[in-house]
Design a protein around this nucleic acid. Structure first.
Length: 646
RNA sequence: GGGCCCGUAGCUCAGCCAGGAUAGAGCGCCGGCCUCCUAAGCCGGUGGUCGGGGGUUCAAAUCCCCCCGGGCCCGCCA
């Protein structure tokens, strides 16, 4: 459950979990979760509510503790801990000297703290970000990317195989709208970007927003909806200033001259789905241009993908038609509003409710009732969800994955639930049960929602640029005379650290109201605070020079802050392992902040390089190294790059 | 109308799923600390009817029910 690690903390925890679970008859998962640091340090380093289980299993608490003690003894681990039963809790306290002794030995052999390895490695697919290729990535996508990338890094570090994928939605209405805009303007995305002096994704985003609002205006005018019309016109007025006048005008006049603008958009979608020219090259060209911009931003953001999947490839390769065939043969196939559909509520009633495992994995809302899921439009084109069914099956098939994690906004909950039920309807039970929607709440602008359609959003590029500018000023002030190139590189890593940390630290179900000021506050509770703490620790080590572990005195770390810091730095492998298992990068973030706090407090009171006693000095330096490396490894897992100096 | 998520200090949040030991951080505000390992730091002070009500329990911020406030979703959009 805990997995394997060389350090005494991981080994003790693994044994406690095994032993307690054994003697109390409680599942290891539960024991692992309840084995936590007590509310106050004087109780010890780890605590477990034995009495809760003792009464349930009829085992005397004392007996249980003795049994666990015996197990630790057998594994030669008892020397590391004191164990006491206090008011029904088993309190475990690590013995500083003995732990330090063992840690010095490990460090001397080149050991570094790293997440405990899973005993059963699995294959994961993490699909994340997957933004529509019609506008630049905004902070909502950045939250998605931060979460997805951190998950992937955590799972890999835990020893799993992880395949990270980006799904390119190039068959939706949005791309078709952008395509219409480019067609009317007669420009090419990359050329326009050059003229505007912006990245290609920003240029496409502008054309998309102009075209979308022009279409909305026409529609509102036709229907006499004054409010909609006002909104569209206001958006257009804002957009007008942000790009070449000629392009803006040709889109506007082009759209107004179209007899049936909606039909124009539909035609592009239809022809693209069939793979016909010139739509094929037009749409692909736009999407490629945007993806080029995405890649640039994501690379700067420290996010990488193994595979990029084109929605259109699934359609063109016959994958989607195959799924449609299977749907038609499914007992849950139905016709709804004269269109082929799947009877989703019936799937819920017949395939989920009677099946305990399915019920547990697929949580149905009470009184779940939705209309059947339509698979094909009356013009013969497929719908997003239909293609997503094909994609889901595809992800499992090409990777051989045990689990697929889709990092998608919470607003897609119902759609994701329908998707899993559709998989069940087609007989893909394993896939349906092992695919999860890793949902997160949106990032809001103060007072309103971000919208790529209205062209109202804060792009990740803008925020990173602003953060970089701020940190560059600070870096230069603190390092007068440092080379410009170095300062820039450090500033950009601080900027990324700040934004990524700000986006993974809060629980993912908390809606974030975007306060750029707060995000760029580099004080405590921030990515740069961790980087700063790392740099401080690193600076000590540089000044100290080589550590001689044979000289280091374990007694120096036996008590007080040093002992506490030693134990807390050693928690990293287990905390990271748990964060990986729970898919909870925010737990790792909280731990790193606490470790940094503790280190900084100790730093103010104690000295390393001025320590007169040589044995104590080497011991303290070893402690600093352990803290630095736990911090550094943890930061890396969250995409916050450790900096030797800043 | 139905469903889901959120509601904890002036502000942003952790703790809730897996009930227990004096509810934790940061920001803000007030006051201190740089001839000494990076002050993006540290120390002290300030601040809480855990949205409200009921229930279960020896024990509830945590579980159950009702209500209130905010958000999201219920499309031949994605």
């Amino acid at each position: 459950m805990v997995g394997s690690g060389k350090d005494p903390y991981t080994r003790v925890v693994a044994t406690l979990v095994e032993g307690l679970s054994d003697v109390l008859g409680a599942p290891e998962v539960q024991v692992f979760r309840l084995l936590q640091p007590p509310p106050r340090r004087e109780y010890g380093d780890l605590s477990f509510p034995v009495m809760r289980f003792a009464s349930r299993s009829g085992v005397d608490p004392e007996t249980a503790v003795e049994s666990v003690r015996g197990m630790l003894w057998e594994r030669n681990l008892l020397r590391f801990v004191d164990m006491r039963l206090e008011s029904g809790f088993l309190n475990v306290k690590f013995k500083g000297e003995d732990v330090a002794d063992e840690v010095f030995r490990l460090l001397a052999s080149g050991w570094k703290p790293s997440p405990a390895r899973a005993s059963k490695p699995r294959t994961f697919v993490v699909e994340h970000t997957s933004a529509n290729p019609v506008h630049p990535l905004h902070l909502g996508h950045a939250r998605n990317a931060s979460l997805g990338d951190s998950l992937a890094r955590l799972l890999r570090a835990r020893g799993h195989m992880v395949n990270v994928r980006f799904y390119i939605n190039d068959m939706g209405r949005q791309v078709a709208v952008a395509a219409l805009g480019f067609k009317l303007a007669g420009v090419e995305p990359r050329k326009l970007a050059e003229d505007m002096g912006v990245k290609p994704d920003a240029a496409v985003g502008w054309v998309y927003a102009v075209t979308h609002n022009a279409l909305e205006a026409v529609k509102a005018r036709a229907s006499g909806d004054a409010r909609e019309l006002d909104e569209a016109m206001a958006a257009l007025a804002r957009l007008k200033e942000r790009g070449p006048r000629a392009v803006f005008e040709s889109i506007l006049s082009g759209v107004s001259k179209l007899g049936d603008p909606e039909e124009e958009v539909n035609k592009i979608m239809r022809r693209y789905e069939e793979g016909l020219e010139p739509e094929k090259s037009l749409v692909r060209g736009i999407a490629e241009a945007v993806l080029e911009g995405f890649r640039e931003t994501l690379t700067a953001f420290g996010v990488e993908f193994d595979d990029w999947d084109w929605e259109s490839d699934l359609a063109w390769s016959g994958e989607v038609s195959r799924i449609l065939e299977e749907a038609r043969r499914s007992p849950y196939f139905t016709v709804y509003k004269e269109a082929p559909a799947l009877d989703i509520p019936r799937v819920a009633r017949e395939l989920v409710e009677p099946d305990p495992e399915a019920r547990e994995r697929i949580r149905l809302p009470r009184g779940f009732e939705v209309p059947p899921l339509i698979l094909v439009r009356s013009d013969g084109t497929t719908l997003y969800t239909t293609r997503d069914i094909a994609y889901s099956v595809y992800k499992f098939r090409v990777t051989g994955a045990d689990r697929v994690i889709n990092v998608i906004g919470a607003d897609q909950r119902l759609a994701q639930l329908q998707l899993r039920l559709a998989l069940l309807a087609l007989g893909y039970r394993r896939e349906a049960l092992n695919m999860e929607h890793y949902d997160y709440e949106i990032v809001r602008l103060p007072g309103r929602r971000m919208s790529g359609r209205r062209g109202e959003f804060v792009s990740l590029d803008e925020v990173l640029a602003e953060a970089e500018e701020r940190s560059l000023r600070e870096v230069k002030a603190r390092n007068p005379g440092a080379p410009e190139e170095w300062a820039r590189s450090v500033a950009s890593k601080i900027a990324v650290g700040a934004v990524r940390f700000a986006l993974v630290q809060p629980g993912r179900l908390k809606p974030i109201t975007l306060d750029v000021e707060k995000m760029l506050d580099f004080r405590e509770n921030s990515g740069p605070y961790l980087q700063y703490t790392y740099a401080r620790a690193n600076s000590i080590l540089e000044k100290h020079g080589e550590i001689d572990y044979l000289k280091a005195s374990p007694q120096a770390l036996d008590e007080g802050m040093r002992r506490d810091l030693l134990v807390d730095a050693l928690r990293f492998p287990v905390i990271a392992a748990k964060a990986a298992d729970d898919l909870a990068p925010e737990d790792l973030a909280a731990y790193l902040l606490k470790l940094a706090d503790e280190f900084n407090k100790w730093y103010e009171r104690d000295t390393v390089i001025h320590e007169p006693d040589e044995a104590a000095r080497h011991a303290k330096a070893a402690l600093v190294k352990l803290v630095r490396d736990s911090l550094g490894e943890g930061m890396r897992l969250l995409g916050v790059e450790p900096l030797p100096r800043m």
